[in-house]
Amino acid sequence: MSSQTPLVTSLIAERFGGAVENLGFAHGIHAFSAPPEAIVELCRFLKEHPALRFDFLSDICGVDHHPEKPRYEAVYHLYSLPNKWRVRIKSRLGDPPRIASVTSVWRTANWHEREAWDMYGIRFTGHPDLRRIYMWEGFEGFPQRKDFPLRGYRDKLNPFGAEGQPPTQPDLATRDIP
């Protein structure tokens, strides 16, 4: 497990310089922080480099760090089937959150990104079909954001919800964030 540390770190530092920050090795995973502009390039590099070959995308996950700034984060977990290594890439996003889609690198990213959009409103540019996946079409708000009440907002179907109106935001993926 620990033998991967120097290799991954040095190769990334060589290719990306200071843009990709090394967050260290903990609990069997090496973590990096990358700017959102570099995410596709970094993923493609990790996947295709013959010494690394992170060919399996385990997971994409959105995080809301409210009230910290920058508020949002997209977290990628990759696995290398030949080397049996894991790596985590974190990317902090401003408001409104926006990051390039990695569906061109892995097809499995499709639903993960749709989930992050649905729950956190992270907009993945270049995604072929960014629709809600769990919530229904026309649902207002992004339910896993920290400022979204646990029981939702009160309306005729939800008498136990919190007072107030959900923050309006463009719901349809086809419409652009203002």
Binding site: M119, R132, I133, Y134, W136, P143, Q144, L150
Partner: peptide, 11 residues
């Protein structure tokens, strides 16, 4: 999908 969504992660 989503007919059985219970919000496990939020809960």
């Amino acid at each position: 999908i989503g007919y059985l969504h219970r919000g496990t992660e939020k809960l």
